[in-house]
Amino acid sequence: MKFLLLYRKSPEPREQPSAADMQAGYVKWKEWMTKHSKEILEQSPPRSGPKPGGAAAVCRAGAVTDGPYVEGKEVVAGWSFVEVESFGHAVEIAKEVPMFPSVEILEIASF
């Protein structure tokens, strides 16, 4: 199963990570990517889209819910693709995403 992990952040300048946060975040990204290097895809799957009826969830501060997917004015800050054997595994990986307050998990399929 393939999933898109979509990271969102607040556009409010005062809620942006500071340079020190980013320095720490860089280290955490390294750890996260190393830990899940088997599952994270190096390239975006071509010609893919949301799988009809596929699994979806959003993870905020460790809490996983089935919506709402976008809070207020959140903006997209980045994404990754993962390939795992279960939805639960994708959620576990998403929970550990550093730095971003919100991660959307969306099952995808190639056409």
Partner: peptide, 10 residues
């Protein structure tokens, strides 16, 4: 810089 934290890892 925020983009760098993610993409430079690889």
């Amino acid at each position: 810089l925020l983009r760098a934290t993610q993409s430079w890892v690889t």
